[in-house]
Simulated assay, not measured.
Amino acid sequence: METNKNNSSNSKPSASSLRWGILRRALLHRAKNPEDESELGMKRISRKAAKGFNLIPCQLLHHDPNSRDARLCYTLPIQGSPKLVLTQRVDNDVDLTDFEICNRYNIDNTGLVCQWPSEDVLAYFCLSHADLFRSKRVIELGSGYGLAGLVIAAATEALEVVISDGNPQVVDYIQHNVNMNSEAFGDTTVKSMELHWHQKEISDLSHTFDVIVASDCTFFKEFHKDLARITQLLLKNVGPAEAIFFSPKRGNSLDKFLEEIENNGLHFSITETYDTEIWKHHQRFMNGDDSWPGYDKDHCYPLLIRITP
């Protein structure tokens, strides 16, 4: 990943440099005088605020102040659905080891920083559209702590759910969360997987999934080609299959990714108003709800992208 190289005082910070600023601030969160990142810019990109969209209520169960981890309980807002307990990093807590691993594997570190808003939206959408996953093989890409994949496994009667990420640290959290919630999955097979989008050899996975889901994975343009390619490789090429992505536009970032989708022979549709409840939250934030300061449609509201062979 590259940071913005234009250091002119008159230039507007790029979204990429703002995201790096968040990661830097997470690393140096105890510093009293951080360098001059734009606080407004920090708030404008799609980072989880205190509540985010708050579509799936979350309660802190336990946090040892001597640990980087906390245990949270997610209450799925559909009667009869189980509660899910996830272990996650405390917001804004990363260290140099995290960045060393990112450099080693050519991945970003955003999956460890916090639960991002688009993941909450994806999880809620999957819960509300359980029929899309029933008896299907599903994989979540770039899953972070795995909330959406775990929701699919617990509440949709999917045949199999693979929850993947390219960061081995994140995959450890995913596997821990799979183990912790195993009794909620019924007959659904649930696996964690370390999967790098640039992997050339995935013969055991090629064209095996009915549904791919992903959230907030199109931000970094340098990963677009690999993400589009692996989406094409993972989707079944016989029978109905689709990828369901949630992502804000963020300037031309989403458009550039969709160009790569077309270059891989895939088709897509974009839907802005896809759920009444999510749209209601969006409108409230647009009207100045102070639970999400600096909310900006281009950077914060996830569009629904459906990709088919």
Results as ranks from 00 to 15, higher is better:
Ser67Asp: 13
Ser67Met: 07
Arg68Val: 08
Arg68Gln: 05
Arg68Ala: 08
Asp69Ala: 10
Asp69Cys: 10
Leu72His: 11
Cys73His: 08
Tyr74Ala: 03
Thr75Ala: 09
Leu76Lys: 03
Leu76Gln: 06
Pro77Asn: 07
Gln79Ser: 13
Leu84Asn: 03
Leu84Cys: 06
Leu84Thr: 04
Val85Ile: 12
Thr87Tyr: 01
Thr87Arg: 12
Thr87Gly: 03
Gln88Gly: 02
Gln88Asp: 06
Val90Arg: 12
Asn92Glu: 11
Asn92Ile: 00
Asp93His: 11
Asp95Thr: 09
Thr97Met: 11
Phe99Ile: 07
Ile101Phe: 02
Cys102His: 01
Cys102Ser: 13
Cys102Glu: 09
Asn103Met: 07
Arg104Pro: 00
Arg104Trp: 06
Asn106Arg: 14
Asp108Tyr: 09
Asp108Met: 11
Asn109Glu: 00
Thr110Pro: 00
Thr110Ile: 14
Gly111Ile: 02
Val113Arg: 00
Cys114Glu: 13
Cys114Asn: 12
Gln115Ser: 15
Gln115Asn: 13
Pro117Ser: 09
Asp120Trp: 02
Asp120Gln: 10
Val121Glu: 08
Ala123Leu: 04
Phe125His: 15
Cys126Val: 02
Leu127Lys: 06
Leu127Met: 09
Leu127Gln: 08
Leu127Ala: 07
Leu127Pro: 02
Ser128Cys: 12
His129Ala: 01
His129Val: 01
Ala130Thr: 14
Leu132Met: 15
Leu132Gly: 01
Phe133Asp: 09
Phe133His: 04
Ser135Asn: 15
Ser135Lys: 15
Lys136Pro: 01
Arg137Lys: 15
Ile139Tyr: 06
Ile139Leu: 05
Glu140Trp: 04
Glu140Gly: 12
Glu140Pro: 00
Glu140His: 05
Gly146Ile: 01
Gly149Trp: 03
Ile152Pro: 04
Ile152Thr: 14
Leu159Gln: 14
Val161Lys: 05
Val162Asn: 01
Ile163Trp: 02
Ile163His: 05
Asp165Lys: 09
Gly166Arg: 03
Gly166Trp: 00
Pro168Trp: 09
Pro168Asn: 10
Gln169Thr: 15
Gln169Asn: 13
Asp172Ile: 04
Asp172Pro: 00
Asp172His: 11
Ile174Arg: 06
Ile174Thr: 05
Ile174Phe: 00
Gln175Asn: 15
Asn177Val: 05
Val178Trp: 03
Asn179Glu: 12
Asn181Lys: 11
Asn181Cys: 05
Asn181Gly: 08
Ser182Cys: 11
Glu183Trp: 02
Glu183Met: 10
Ala184Gln: 15
Phe185Ile: 05
Gly186Asp: 10
Gly186Glu: 11
Asp187Gln: 13
Thr188Ala: 14
Thr189Gln: 13
Thr189Glu: 14
Val190Glu: 02
Val190Cys: 06
Lys191Ile: 02
Lys191Ala: 11
Lys191Arg: 15
Ser192Glu: 05
Ser192Asn: 03
Met193Lys: 15
Met193Arg: 14
Glu194Cys: 13
Glu194His: 08
Leu195Lys: 01
His196Leu: 15
His196Met: 14
Trp197Glu: 06
His198Trp: 08
Gln199Asp: 15
Lys200Tyr: 06
Ile202Phe: 10
Ile202Met: 12
Ile202Ser: 07
Asp204Cys: 08
Asp204Thr: 14
Leu205His: 13
Ser206Ala: 14
Ser206Lys: 12
Ser206Gly: 04
Ser206Trp: 07
Phe209Asp: 03
